[in-house]
């Protein structure tokens, strides 16, 4: 994925007028069909980029392997995004509830992505009713200027491997957990938690404190990859991925 474009501050600013979807390749058969339809290919590729109209049916920018293939630089991408927003400005007064909580449902994948992004993961845990209530509270907070784009969100289910998360056994069995991933994103550690009865104000305080105390370091991915290969660290994709991807 092209970090230099997607972390550019002009692009990030323009993205606030879009719905941004980052789908994980080789993990979901329905999303794989979408990629094949958009990219016009029979096989899945590692990365793909496009801009679509609000119906999600029409591509406004031809689908390509990366942002770099579509634009000369991040500034050009931001210009194009702003042009798209003049054609599709969106509804006025969009509420956080309209946008929904930006979740990546599978905790295992979300933890991996958290590590890729050097961010923190918020996990919702509990029964259906408790999770729904927490989702509502977090939706408001997740789109607030202070916290937008600061966390990844995921919902625990029966398949969640709590053994991979240090401190999960002692954390709230129903509530919100803030997790920091460890190198390679296969494991993590609970750094804060709140019970399901938490108020929005308490949640906000917890999230803001987690942002303030999180100091991600520079990552040399080339060195990390070499070490990972030496130590046999490997990701299992749900769908078959071409060798070397």
């Amino acid at each position: 994925m092209d970090r230099s474009y997607l972390s550019d501050q002009q692009v990030v600013e323009a993205s606030r007028g879009f719905v941004c979807a980052r789908l994980i390749t080789f993990e979901d058969s329905e999303e794989a069909k979408l990629m094949k339809r958009l990219f016009g290919g029979r096989r899945l590729v590692n990365t793909m980029f496009t801009i679509m109209d609000p119906s999600g049916k029409n591509a406004l920018v031809r689908a390509g392997r990366s942002t770099r293939m579509a634009f000369d630089d991040a500034a050009a991408m931001a210009v194009e995004m702003r042009a798209v927003l003049t054609r599709f400005p969106g509804r006025k007064n969009v509420a956080a509830a309209d946008l929904g909580l930006p979740v990546l449902e599978d905790v295992r994948i979300a933890l991996n992505v958290t590590e890729c992004d050097a961010q923190q993961l918020v996990i919702l845990r509990g029964n259906v009713q408790q999770v729904e209530e927490l989702r509502k509270q977090l939706t408001e907070l997740s789109w607030s200027p202070k916290l937008v784009g600061r966390f990844l969100y995921s919902v625990a289910d029966d398949k969640t491997d709590w053994q991979a998360l240090k401190g999960a056994a002692k954390a709230a069995k129903a509530g919100v957990l803030i997790v920091r991933s460890e190198p390679y994103g296969l494991t993590g550690e609970v750094v804060a938690d709140a019970k399901a009865a938490v108020t929005v104000k308490e949640l906000e305080k917890m999230l803001v404190a987690a942002v303030a105390s999180h100091k991600p370091k520079a990552v040399d991915t080339r060195r990390l990859r070499r070490r990972g290969i030496r130590n046999g660290v490997q990701w299992q994709t749900e769908l078959s991925a071409p060798k070397g991807r």
């Binding site: 719905v19 789908l23 590729v45 496009t50 679509m52 999600g56 590590e115 990701w235 994709t237």
Partner: peptide, 22 residues
């Protein structure tokens, strides 16, 4: 719900199947 356009990216959170990196 918002009638906003969509910025769509597909990405794989592994490099040579080593996880934790784009």
């Amino acid at each position: 719900a918002s009638q906003r356009p969509i910025l769509l990216v597909f990405a794989a959170p592994h490099c040579g199947l080593v996880p934790g990196m784009w």
